[in-house]
């Protein structure tokens, strides 16, 4: 039995980044196509059809669909017996640096104090890695390259607990109204309810990892997702903020129990270019792409191949 080498894993993850920035997951493509069919505003329809042209072209030609290839965040679910667990952090940094050159992706890691761009998408705490250590010897990993325009309009709101669900809805509606056309709608809204300030924001981002076709398993939360989906679309912001029926493609919510005195709501806005790729990797180097319908990650070619 062969064992997965460091080089193989770096290579597969680099291709995973390329897959993410050049090809949208099927659920996002479907949601945009459905929005196009439904849309009654002619300007909005024109924008949605050009978005479909753009993601079709980027996938066919293997080029980033958007020039802002975002900040790289990794969501890691690693078995405690996965053979490369000890060097995984440096592997993720290496794959990020390599992808900057061979996809290529735009260097987006800037020192907040000096303004200096590191040039390779790595820096202090970046790429950010979310760790989850589980039983077993597999690695399940998601890369989320999220654009700056949509991160800019994300917000944490502290709601008075007495206002309950009404207060949560008000916080979300006001945030998306203020965001207007800035996060490149139609957007996906990830919402984290409860926990604490940091937990709510983190849950909002984790909510973005769930496919748009799946509602939350808690029926009360699923109902809130559906109601907010309809209410946000009736704001009329529309694609790129020029009006229309389609402001959001989906609303995904996660929640945690909260302190009696606080009700934090983390609202994470994600542009239509909702890019992510998920790979499952076994210790003997079998790699399955979970996020996209492609049989083999090595069918994704890098620059110069």
């Amino acid at each position: 039995m062969t064992t997965l080498s460091r080089e193989q894993l770096v290579d597969a993850l680099t291709r995973g980044i390329k897959l993410a920035v050049t090809s949208l997951p099927q659920d996002v493509k479907d949601a945009i196509k459905q929005a196009y069919e439904r849309e009654s505003n002619p300007v909005a329809k024109k924008i949605l059809s050009s978005i479909i042209d753009n993601f079709t072209l980027s996938e066919k030609d293997g080029i980033p669909m958007c020039q802002d290839t975002g900040t790289i965040t990794w969501f890691v679910k690693v078995g405690k017996d996965f053979p490369l667990i000890r060097e995984l952090e440096s592997i993720l940094q290496e794959a990020t640096r390599k992808a900057t050159k061979v996809v290529p992706i735009r260097p987006n890691a800037v020192d907040p104090l000096t303004g200096k761009n590191s040039g390779d998408n790595t820096g202090r705490f970046i790429p950010w890695i979310n760790w989850e250590i589980v039983d077993g010897d597999d690695l399940e990993i998601t890369v989320l390259p999220k654009g700056g325009g949509s991160e800019y309009t994300s917000q944490l709101r502290m709601v008075s607990p007495g206002l309950g669900i009404k207060g949560i809805k008000e916080a979300v509606l006001k945030t998306i109204f203020e965001a207007g056309g800035k996060p490149c709608p139609p957007i996906i809204v990830g919402i984290g309810i409860g926990g604490g300030a940091d937990i709510a924001m983190k849950l909002g981002k984790i909510a973005l990892l769930r496919p748009l076709t799946l509602r939350h398993q808690n029926p009360k939360v699923a109902q809130l997702e559906e109601e907010l989906f309809n209410e946000l679309n009736s704001l009329g912001i529309g694609p790129m903020g020029l009006g229309g029926d389609t402001t959001v493609l989906g609303v995904n919510i996660e929640y945690a129990h909260r302190h009696p005195a606080t009700l934090p709501v983390g609202i994470v806005t994600q542009c239509w270019a909702a890019r992510k790729a998920t790979l499952k990797i076994t210790p003997n180097g079998e790699i399955t792409v979970l996020s996209h319908n492609i049989p083999n990650i090595f069918s994704i070619k890098l620059l110069g191949e």
């Binding site: 924008i47 050009s50 978005i51 042209d53 753009n54 993601f55 072209l57 980027s58 030609d61 080029i63 980033p64 669909m65 958007c66 020039q67 802002d68 654009g147 325009g149 490149c184 694609p239 790129m240 020029l242 542009c271 239509w272 270019a273």
Partner: peptide
Amino acid sequence: TIFPGGLGALAAK
């Protein structure tokens, strides 16, 4: 005028 945000591939073409 607005060129829809994120259409980097289409613009490059």
